Structures are given as C-alpha cells and as structure tokens.
Amino acid sequence: MYLIIFDVDGTLVDSQNTILHGLQVGFEAAGLPMPDRQTALSIVGRSLEEAFRDLVGPDHLEKAPLMAEAYRQSKISRRGQGLDIDPLYPGAREAIDRLHARDEVLLGIATGKAMRGVRHMQETHDLHDRFVTIQTADTSPSKPHPDMILRAMSETGVEPARTLMIGDTGFDMAMAKAAGVHALGVTWGYHDHARLAAEGADKIIHSFDELERALSDFLKYDEETV
C-alpha cells in the first residue's frame, strides 16, 4: 500500500486571492501595513498564527493572535455568504480521481488550514470520500514540523518508504524530509523551483500532467494500469 499526501493551498486549489483578502483583514485589525503580494504569499502553508508572526516580525509578535482571529472570522463570514470559493487547479480533480481508483493507493491531506477550511474545500468540489487521513493545523504544529505526516502514516499504517508528500512550498518539502518520506514539489503554487529544491524536493513537476510519471518513479507502480 502507498500513501500519497497532498497539501491544499497552492497545490490542489488556487487560493491566492482569498488568502490575500484574509491577510488584509488581519493587518487592518492590527493597524499595520499590508506587505507586498509576494511577501504575503510566501508564508502560505504555515499555520495561521505562525504565518502572521513570520510576516509582522519581532516588533509585533503580540498582535499575531488578534490578526489570526480576524482572518478566521472573515473566512467564516464570507463562506457563509457563498464567497471565498477557491478553484481546483487544472488537472487536480482528474488526478485525485485516478489515484483514488487505485487499490494500492491511499490519499491524504496535510495542510496549514483548519479542518473547517478543508471541509469547505471538500464540499465545494465534492471530494468527501477521497482522503482517508486529513491532518490540519487544528491538531498539529505548523509545517515544517513533521507531525502531520507522522500522524497520517500512523493512521494508515503505511511506512515512510511508501509515503509521498506533494506540495508547493519549501515548508512541505522540509516537512517531508523531517518525516523521512519522499517529497514531490509543484511549481504552480507559492514557492519557486529554486526554493523547493533547496528545501529537499526529490523531484519537481510543473503541471498535473506530469504527476503520474513522477509517481511511478517514486512509488514503483506501473502508470499504465490506472
């Protein structure tokens, strides 16, 4: 059995606009200026309070909980209005469906989102039965701590050599290396090729069209049997 773990933001869904809106709400709540777009998005993947701490720096660390709560409440409100709908990246749905259909593959999630955000994503895109293990910021330390992957392997009984983490940030790659599993970077998200490589990516792909070949290289199954 193989375990393939996906990050969410920047890997499965294009959430940059809704994340930026939430960050803006947080900075406004704290009376601080919003950083530029590239800087703001560089923290995607981190747990919410840790992300705000990274962005505000040592002079305003005490404001991070307030900012995180403002972000959360904005998300709850906007989702209740049918807003903040993050689209799947091209090819994501097809890739998930193909992998889910394989008897020897289990799918999981490891994300800096709260479970509430993951459930919203599942409901929006009808992905309720695809993932057998879901690890979130509610129960684990922020990436790159390996706890999410360790929990996923414990829940599924899959060993590190047969586990692969797929993500778009250096945090995902570093988390995978810390957990002793394979790391597959994707370049359509928030960190570039150089950062993914520097943080330990074993392989880097540029579209979901490349995923099956990459998985056959890592996990040693025949992609033609999909």
Rank of each mutant, 00 (worst) to 15 (best):
M1P: 12
V8R: 03
G10P: 00
T11F: 07
V13F: 02
D14Y: 04
Q16S: 10
T18F: 10
T18C: 09
G22M: 02
G26D: 00
E28K: 14
E28W: 10
A29E: 05
A30F: 02
A30I: 03
L32Y: 10
P33L: 05
P35R: 08
D36I: 11
Q38N: 14
S42D: 04
S42P: 08
I43L: 12
V44A: 00
G45Q: 07
R46M: 06
E50C: 09
F52Y: 11
R53K: 14
R53N: 08
L55Y: 10
L55D: 09
G57I: 05
D59I: 10
K63H: 15
A64G: 14
A68P: 02
A70S: 02
S74H: 12
S74A: 04
I76K: 11
R79D: 03
R79F: 08
R79T: 02
L83A: 13
D84G: 01
D84F: 11
D84H: 04
P90T: 03
R93V: 05
E94L: 05
A95Q: 08
I96L: 06
D97T: 15
L99N: 07
L99G: 15
E104S: 12
L106R: 15
L106N: 09
L107D: 03
A110I: 09
G112I: 06
G112M: 03
K113T: 01
R116P: 12
R119Y: 13
E123G: 07
H125K: 14
D126S: 15
D126V: 14
L127G: 04
V132A: 11
T133R: 13
Q135G: 15
P141I: 09
K143R: 07
K143H: 09
P144A: 15
H145C: 13
L150H: 05
A152N: 01
M153R: 01
P160C: 15
R162M: 10
T163I: 14
T163R: 12
L164H: 05
I166P: 10
D168N: 00
D168V: 00
G170P: 01
F171G: 00
F171M: 00
F171K: 00
M173E: 03
A174M: 15
A174K: 13
A176I: 11
A176L: 12
H182G: 13
A183L: 01
Y190D: 00
H193G: 02
H193W: 09
A194S: 15
A198I: 06
A198V: 07
E199H: 07
K203D: 05
I205E: 00
D209K: 10
L211N: 05
L211S: 04
L211P: 04
E212N: 09
E212D: 10
A214T: 01
S216E: 10
D217R: 08
L219A: 11
E224Y: 09
